[in-house]
Write a protein that binds this DNA or RNA. Sequence first.
DNA 1: TTGACATTTCGATGATTCGCGATACGATGA
DNA 2: TCATCGTATCGCGAATCATCGAAATGTCAA
Lengths: 106, 106
Amino acid sequence: MNVNAKLFMALSNQTRLNILQWLKDPEKEITSVSSEEVRYMMKEKGGICVADIAENAGLAQSTISKYLSDLHNCGLLISERHGKWTYYRRNEENIQELSKYIAKEL
Amino acid sequence: MNVNAKLFMALSNQTRLNILQWLKDPEKEITSVSSEEVRYMMKEKGGICVADIAENAGLAQSTISKYLSDLHNCGLLISERHGKWTYYRRNEENIQELSKYIAKEL
DNA sequence: TTGACATTTCGATGATTCGCGATACGATGA
DNA sequence: TCATCGTATCGCGAATCATCGAAATGTCAA
């Protein structure tokens, strides 16, 4: 992962921070769909889809699509497309790498 | 330290990231004054003064003063005033705290 | 091929940030 | 007290970001 100003920019918005938080425990935090559905998406599709995250955030779907794309571009999220849907989940490896970078290189 | 969007905003600018880097090894990185002077400032004054960092950055004094204030306000730098001068150094404790926050809470 | 649907991209507008020069503040020394 | 010097703050125009709705793209199913 490339740790740079752009990455920190992605983290400098409360909604994008919220998204990262929600995806830590989506079954609990994504309340716009049932936890069964959330569990299914996470296990079978590898993440939560854009519309559900947008619903949770209360912002326009196009805004959230952009945010998710930003978080994906800087390596903080992994995206997986299944048919019409794009599912996003955390990139735990890169988050740990970021932590180590800050401890040693920042 | 309070880890929030404002903190990441402070890190989302290349010059501010550079400043943090320079203050890791100022004797080597602050080239606008002699290394003797840098050593003296670090040891006796507890940091590097605004003008020298501005010189190093090649940006206006007012710009760098603001950047240093931002980095100080979010806990990444410590400032110490001696007479007319304000000296800034890294807040290593908070930087490690930030690293741990990212590893566990982000 | 067409229709429907999820997502992405585009264009617009208001808000925020960047970086500057000018100015105000605070400390020193004559 | 006053002049000077380092720093902090203010106000500005330019650039970037936030957010929306509309339009374009991609995918499935009929």
